[in-house]
Design a binder for these strands. Sequence first.
DNA 1: TTGGTATTGTGTATGGCTTACACATTATAT
DNA 2: ATATAATGTGTAAGCCATACACAATACCAA
Lengths: 239, 239
Amino acid sequence: MGTALQKTIHQLKSENREFFHMALSVDCVILGFDENELKVLLIKSDLEEFSDQWSLLGDLVRPDENLDSASYRVLKERTGLDDVFLEQVYTFGDVNRHPAGRVITTAWYSLINIKDHQMSLAHNELHWHPVSEITTLAFDHKKILDTCLHQLQSKIDEHPIVFNLLPEKFSLRELQSLYESIHGTKLDRRNFRKKFFLMDWLIDVNELEQDVPHRPGKLYRFNADRFSDGKKVKLQEHA
Amino acid sequence: MGTALQKTIHQLKSENREFFHMALSVDCVILGFDENELKVLLIKSDLEEFSDQWSLLGDLVRPDENLDSASYRVLKERTGLDDVFLEQVYTFGDVNRHPAGRVITTAWYSLINIKDHQMSLAHNELHWHPVSEITTLAFDHKKILDTCLHQLQSKIDEHPIVFNLLPEKFSLRELQSLYESIHGTKLDRRNFRKKFFLMDWLIDVNELEQDVPHRPGKLYRFNADRFSDGKKVKLQEHA
DNA sequence: TTGGTATTGTGTATGGCTTACACATTATAT
DNA sequence: ATATAATGTGTAAGCCATACACAATACCAA
């Protein structure tokens, strides 16, 4: 009982096998947090026939580049950023998922700080969309987006990754409202603050919010030194 | 700024692009629990040059089959099983990960009940190996195995999937020892039992263990009706 | 300058869950 | 019959999660 993997690709090609009517792509779910909303960076569909639909940012993987390099390349080409949080989520490989042919795609999500990088994507067809308002996307991209968001929800309860979405200095309200918009819940303000101070993840930078029409909150930055993989971020369940 | 995804595969092929020197495979980490140990099903490497090394069970994805269908096919071809737990974990795509050429692989893990299916894999080069004794595997398969095991560890704390590894009727000791061998920890027996009874996930089938050289334990089966996605299985952390 | 407004900053009591821990019981084997 | 080896069971202590209210502060408008 043999499998195709027993042969080299050159052997397969000389046998005229059909394995090479496929292509592999990466798609990036690039998330940002702005105006108290979680937003995703979308582009008018790459394909002309789908040009009225928004799609994720993706490209084919090149034969000479690693899979993760491909996703970093897409991110860099589209946003100018390279030192950002990027994580693989899932690979989608249904036969008819893409109109251009058999394209299997690996989805990645990236968390970036919109405020500090707003200028970089002034060019071309890119726009930030509130994720809560997205009902349809091109191809199977809505499903990909949902999968990434679901993974993000699990992940933020285990690891302190939300700080990638915030500016270097942020208020506790911003932090709480970020957790709330990712989880779609309301949290108790006092317990939220207590929790984060107890975990010792925040450093008081001795500054106050500016330009707010009310009492300004203190600003903090993330205490990366304090991060240990064992600690959990679990917050309240309901409320 | 265009990407290769803007073109159909036929356009790309007529341009003689290099995207088609790649192939896509699936690799299955098939796990079982036997003699109080977690075991993985391995095969003598598919490639002759690596025939002294063990490898995971995999094959190329066919052009006309979905990605998940490919992993189910591999499982069915190798073990005869089809109604089993199988879940995608991660896609590995380093340029030089496979000696046969550019092969990107999607890893899956499967949880099966060895005892009830022992006969099916009498044929060929397959063998169960205790995962704790595995130090090297062919290609990057050790890395793939480790990734799957790590994912399994996280997963069993959130979802009641370990039952897939047990026979229909099992003792509490078997269940506890399964958790212990996946997590590599020791758990308190009384608290473990209390926890599971409290969650109401076990049904007493009014039978006792057979052929044990000591007082036999009661047998239970998993109460699938009681399963709600919200419940967590979190056990003690240390001990 | 004053009063109104909106949001920040703070503590405590309750209940539930987690943990640590010991001894009598039961089937088997000699 | 006796020794052996594992099963089956309960309670107390501490920690964590939750619910909840009021004073302080900065801005704004009159």
